[in-house]
């Protein structure tokens, strides 16, 4: 535990000249193209973009699940090849092991590292205590609410003391109230652990509220459209979301994403061969929907 809390800040993520394509019957399909991003040690960075823009692809490449077609992904100068416990990951679908109790889930990474049972039990209990989950250590994930599951997911990813935490729309399946609480919990943990965070979301408010910096991606093939520093003071309160500063950032990001979303949807419409329809009307109603 202490080792985790007092560790010197590290976890410098760098993604350079990154592109990723996969083969299909019609030839290679570009998912992400010509992308550079970086996360400084201890920084909280979000990636936002229209759905299907490849933001999750990018995150999965940093995690080591996907190999870049061109370019490199490095963490602290070392190239990423394959997943590792150095880079903890939190998934939207929680992905807790249903056959393990809450504590066994949290212990998993330590067990893989070969830590003796009594030691890892103690570590897991401490971590669960910090997340306010000690009462549930013997429960199976099935019996937990979504918010609790994701708290376990975050604690599990942090248990091994990773340099970097990657989150793939972790709160997307939660209701609005729970989401706000989870954002607060994540911020607290991040500030305590001084860990680098790369956070993928489609929720603009969430990205601004949490991040030091936000990358906005273009529609597919995805690349970085803009990089927006978030100079809001920390610690941030919920009330801050009504401030003019926040709203200005929100407006800016919103218009960037709307542009790309329209592009993505417009592309789909012509793909489906609907040119005969009144596209103007269509575009209008789409804009209204957004």
């Amino acid at each position: 535990m202490n080792e985790i809390l007092t560790k010197a800040p590290q976890g410098h993520i760098e993604v350079r000249n990154f592109s990723l394509s996969y083969d299909s019957i019609e030839g290679p399909v570009q998912a992400v193209t010509d992308t550079q991003i970086h996360v400084k040690p201890g920084e909280f960075v979000s990636i936002v973009g229209p759905s299907g823009c490849g933001k999750s692809t990018l995150l999965n490449a940093v995690a080591g699940f996907l190999k870049p077609t061109t370019g490199v992904v490095t963490v602290d100068g070392e190239p990423v090849n394959g997943p590792s416990a150095e880079r903890g990951m939190v998934f939207q679908q929680y992905s807790l092991f249903p056959w393990k109790t809450v504590r066994e889930n949290v212990e998993f990474g330590l067990k893989m590292r070969g830590m003796p049972r009594s030691q890892r039990e103690r570590a897991a209990r401490t971590l669960l205590g910090l997340a306010g989950l000690e009462a549930f250590e013997k429960h199976y994930p099935d019996k937990l609410s979504g918010g609790m599951k994701q708290r376990v997911g975050i604690v599990r990813a942090l248990a091994t003391g990773p340099k970097v935490l990657l989150l793939d729309e972790p709160f997307g399946a939660l209701d609005a109230q729970t989401r706000v609480i989870m954002q607060q919990i994540l911020t607290n943990m991040w500030q305590r652990l001084k860990i680098s965070v790369l956070f993928v979301t489609h929720d603009i408010d969430e990205a601004i509220f949490l991040s030091d910096r936000v990358y906005c991606m273009t529609a597919r093939p995805g690349s970085i459209k803009a990089e927006i520093p978030i100079p809001l003071e920390r610690p941030r309160q919920q009330a801050m979301m009504m401030s003019s500063e926040f709203l200005a950032l929100r407006r800016g990001l919103m218009s960037l994403i709307r542009e790309e979303s329209l592009k993505a949807m417009g592309g789909e419409i012509s793909d489906m061969g609907l040119q005969g329809l009144n596209i103007e009307l269509h575009g209008h109603s789409l804009a209204d929907v957004i």
Binding site: G88, S95, R156
Partner: peptide, 18 residues
Amino acid sequence: VDPVLVRAAQCLGARERS
């Protein structure tokens, strides 16, 4: 078997046998 669970295990340091 849910492939996401396999991924979750991998980024917690699990190898093939585990």
